[in-house]
Amino acid sequence: MEFVWHIDGTAPLYIQLADDIRLAIIQGRLMPGARIASVRDLAFDAKVNPNTMQRALTELEREGLIETHGTAGRFVAVNEEVLKSIKDRVIDDLVSDFIKRMEALDCDREEAVRRINERKGEE
């Protein structure tokens, strides 16, 4: 499958599963319009309870990232604006998390940016 499942000890499972599916979509591992596997197959793949997986998908439907087409199943939404705004949100969340961690180490934003820029050309 297109997914990489990361489940750890803190957040509710359905939120972590939704994060993993969302990432697969915004990274393009799962393209707009692509069909999404059944709840049971996804649950089997992630080794989680099907009801928990169902809840993760419902969350993504609520965000507009996934659409249900009657009995045909679930598909990745084709709406590019939704995709872009969700990708922006994920990036913003990562940046906020990064800033928090740096502040916890008494590293202010200027220093953080300086260190990021110093890395240019290294990779």
């Binding site: 489940i7 992630a46 080794k47 309870n49 009801n51 928990t52």
Partner: peptide
């Protein structure tokens, strides 16, 4: 820990 993701 082995089983908790499987449980409701």
């Amino acid at each position: 820990s082995d089983i908790e993701t499987v449980l409701d």
